[in-house]
Computed example of a mutant assay.
Amino acid sequence: MAFSERLRSISVIDAAAAVVALVAVGGVLWSPKLSNTVARATGAIKPVEVTVDVRNTSAADPDQFIAKALQSGRTSLVIRNQPAGSVQLIRVDDIRRQIASVLPDGSVVMADDPNREIQGMLDARFVLQGDATVTSSGVVMAGTKLKVGIPVELEGRFYRVNGIVSGVSLQ
Rank of each mutant, 00 (worst) to 15 (best):
V92E: 04
M110W: 15
P104I: 02
V25F: 05
L7G: 13
V50G: 01
G167W: 10
G85P: 08
V140G: 03
S31A: 04
V161H: 11
G130V: 00
V28H: 08
A39C: 05
V52Y: 01
S11H: 07
P114S: 07
I10C: 11
V152W: 15
A124F: 03
D14S: 06
Q82L: 05
M1L: 14
A132R: 00
R55I: 07
K147P: 08
S4R: 09
L154Y: 10
G167C: 06
M141S: 03
S72F: 06
V161T: 08
V161C: 10
G138S: 00
A15N: 11
A17Y: 12
A18F: 12
V134G: 00
G85L: 02
L34Y: 08
L22G: 13
V108T: 06
F65H: 02
A39Q: 11
R40S: 08
D53I: 03
A17W: 12
L29R: 04
V87E: 01
D14P: 03
W30G: 03
S137N: 05
Q82V: 13
R40T: 06
I164P: 12
G43A: 00
D61P: 13
A69T: 06
F3Y: 02
I118M: 14
V54R: 10
R116F: 13
V139H: 11
L7Q: 08
G149Q: 05
L70C: 00
N115D: 08
P104D: 11
L89W: 13
G73F: 09
Q64A: 11
A124I: 02
L34C: 05
S72L: 13
R6D: 10
Q71H: 09
L77V: 01
S58F: 15
L146S: 01
I150V: 05
V23Y: 15
F3L: 07
Q71M: 11
I150H: 00
F126Y: 15
G85K: 03
V148S: 00
L7F: 12
S31R: 01
V148A: 00
V148E: 02
A84C: 03
A69E: 02
N81T: 10
I66F: 15
A67S: 07
M121H: 14
P83K: 04
P104Y: 11
A17E: 11
V23S: 13
D93M: 10
K145L: 01
I13M: 08
I99W: 13
M121N: 12
I13A: 15
P83V: 02
P32D: 10
S166K: 14
T144G: 08
N36K: 14
D63R: 12
F126R: 06
N36G: 14
L29G: 04
V12W: 09
N115F: 14
S137E: 06
S9P: 08
D94C: 03
G85W: 01
D94V: 05
E155F: 11
V12Y: 08
K145V: 04
L122N: 07
G26T: 00
I164M: 13
L29H: 03
S58I: 13
D61N: 15
G85I: 00
R157C: 00
A60S: 13
A15Y: 10
V140E: 00
R160P: 04
T57L: 11
I150W: 00
I95T: 04
R116W: 13
S58A: 14
